[in-house]
């Protein structure tokens, strides 16, 4: 299948990316080229093949549920775009 203008807008919205109206045609072209490349996978016979999520098929390691991190709020908020009284500020969400 081929992505049209509407599809590109929908994907950009899902990805939370603003894109310029003028740029949509070239995004559509590039994304379709990439998807054409990817569509080569459909020819592969993968019947009964287990999906590979980790190269060494390792499992997630477990650790005791204990506190290992100290509070870094000040250090982390020092690099934030906008904070006040220890919280991150964003435009008003709830009226």
């Amino acid at each position: 299948m081929s992505l049209d203008k509407h599809d590109v807008e929908k994907i950009a919205h899902l990805a939370r990316l603003s894109i310029q109206e003028d740029d949509i045609p070239h995004y559509a072209r590039d994304l379709n080229n990439i998807l054409n490349l990817v569509d080569q996978l459909s020819a592969a016979d993968t019947n009964g093949i287990l999906p590979m999520a980790h190269p060494l098929d390792a499992h997630q390691r477990l650790r005791p549920d204990t506190v290992t991190e100290i509070n870094h709020r000040e250090a982390f908020q020092a690099i934030a775009p906008k904070t006040e009284a220890g919280v991150y500020l964003v435009p008003k969400v709830i009226e």
Partner: peptide, 30 residues
Amino acid sequence: VKRRIMIGTYALSAGYYDAYYLKAQQCRRL
């Protein structure tokens, strides 16, 4: 970066997971 984020978002979006991501993970095994 935007192109790749969009391709990835599309591949993981509802209805396309099996055709893209699952298929790719199987090909990875091959």
